[in-house]
Design a protein around this nucleic acid. Structure first.
Length: 395
RNA sequence: GGGCGGGUACCGAAGUGGUCAAACGGGGCUGACUGUAGAUCAGCAGGCUUUACGCCUACAGGGGUUCGAAUCCUCUCCCGCCCA
């Protein structure tokens, strides 16, 4: 496999591939732009797909240029807007940007990057420059974008400022003189626009590399924090492990391919084992989860997370670390008050329902009826379902 | 600026005067089973209480009609479409 082929392995799309391969073979140090909007403080596993690619390119001697979208994030990300969103304040954006970088450097080598912020060039942008930028595309070109079209058809709002997104992102490429821009496959439109903007400003157009979008835990839609199907990079290892175990079985190989260093040979071997049912999908999934978690938190943490998961969910034992709750001493408790006091139920009504459903155990025995008061011994464990439990202490 | 159509629980979406705390689907929670928080099947679904077909709060917001309103009227706010 040539150097270029190695760097482009597993990618869905390049523009233009022959040109990019030539440049990769030339030994040139390429400036590889990757942009992120710090509109929310957390990166998730979907972001680590391009991050992992950047690391590979770093190893081959190229320079990632990370563009922090502090400007577009400050305006407010209009996608998925359900109400007028409060504009993010500068400090908030800056704080987000910092946690972003911390998370990024879990994967990307912090010594081999250039970090840039949009504010470097947009703070001083005047109207003449805005108009010149706006002249780099026509309305028809901007509206042909698939998600605008879908939203218009679905009678959802499309803000005027959203039309500027591709232009702003494109101008970023001009500002940082990008040779290559990396993005998710949903970014193709914006990335291509970047080429046109560069041409309009007299620069050679960047090459484009798009990586596949990672499906979220629901197995259907792309991973996104707002869809609630994401695993955050900063989440604790046990939580990540558990979330990964809730993945539909058919995505095990996909996650291995996009989120770990598993080789194509290992993947096809694993596929064969699963097809022949020689391997329990649960165990394959656990191996995947362990690899992914160890990539972010290290091997020891990943192993501990795996053991804890099996202990609680396969062997149905109490979690090894149970939170402690201090309660006033009372001779008897209404089970509902007890659940609310332990923060295992939001209301007495909900607590009553949980007891009726047979979900609640106190000191190892199942509560049958919320009407029957219970006595609490110091150190008793109150448990709801299989994995929510607290130890009750007098206080 | 004009015309039209909308705003219902976490999301989508029924419901056009009482039997609506509100169908159905998704998501969520719980149980059974299992091979995992996966799959499948079942249950739960605002709050409070003396757990009763009791009370309070709730169908964008305010005001009104009515014995009674998510449903009718009115004003306000928000959104979409078409025309200009």
């Amino acid at each position: 496999m040539s150097r270029a082929q190695e760097l482009l392995r597993g990618l869905v799309n390049c523009e233009s591939r022959p040109h990019l391969e030539r440049r990769l073979e030339s030994g040139e140090r390429l400036r590889v732009k990757w942009g992120i909007d710090p509109s929310a403080p957390d990166l998730h596993l979907g972001h680590t797909v391009p991050m992992r690619l950047l690391r590979r390119w770093q190893a081959a001697g190229h320079l990632p240029v990370l563009v922090i979208g502090d400007y577009t994030a400050r305006i407010g990300d209009p996608s998925g807007r359900s109400a007028t969103r409060p504009q993010l304040r500068t400090e908030q954006v800056e704080a987000n940007a910092r946690t972003y970088l911390d998370q990024l450097f879990c994967v990307v080598d912090p010594d081999q990057v250039e970090v840039r912020r949009q504010s470097e060039w947009y703070d001083g942008f005047d109207l003449a420059q805005v108009l010149r930028l706006a002249n780099a595309a026509t309305v028809a070109q901007l509206l042909q974008r698939a998600d605008f079209e879908q939203r218009m058809r679905a009678r959802l709002p499309v803000g005027v400022h959203e039309l500027f997104y591709p232009l702003l992102q494109g101008y970023d490429s001009v500002a940082v003189e990008a040779d290559v821009e990396l993005g998710g496959s949903d970014q193709l439109f914006n990335l291509l626009r970047g080429r046109e903007v560069q041409i309009a400003y007299g620069q050679p157009p960047q090459d484009i590399v798009t990586v596949p979008l990672l499906e979220g835990l629901d197995g259907e839609r792309k991973m996104s924090k707002s869809l609630g199907n994401a695993v955050a990079v900063a989440d604790p290892p046990e939580q990540q492990f558990g979330q990964l175990m809730s993945l539909p079985d058919q995505l095990i190989l996909r996650y291995l391919e996009l989120l770990t260093d598993a080789s194509p040979e290992q993947l096809s071997e694993l596929r064969r084992e699963l097809d022949l049912e020689r391997l329990n999908p649960r165990d394959a999934k656990a191996s995947m989860a362990q690899l992914v978690v160890s990539g972010l938190h290290g091997e020891a943490a990943a192993l501990a997370a795996r053991e804890e998961f099996f202990r609680v969910h396969r062997d149905h034992q109490l979690p090894s670390r149970v939170a402690e709750v201090r309660l006033p001493a009372r001779p008897q408790w209404d089970p509902r008050d007890l659940l609310v006091a332990a923060e295992l139920a939001r209301s007495r009504s909900e607590a009553g329902r949980l007891v009726s459903a047979g979900a609640v155990q106190l000191g190892g025995s199942r509560l049958a009826d919320w009407r029957r008061p219970v006595t609490v011994e110091a150190g008793d464990v109150l448990q709801v379902g299989s994995h929510r439990a607290v130890r009750l202490l007098p206080g």
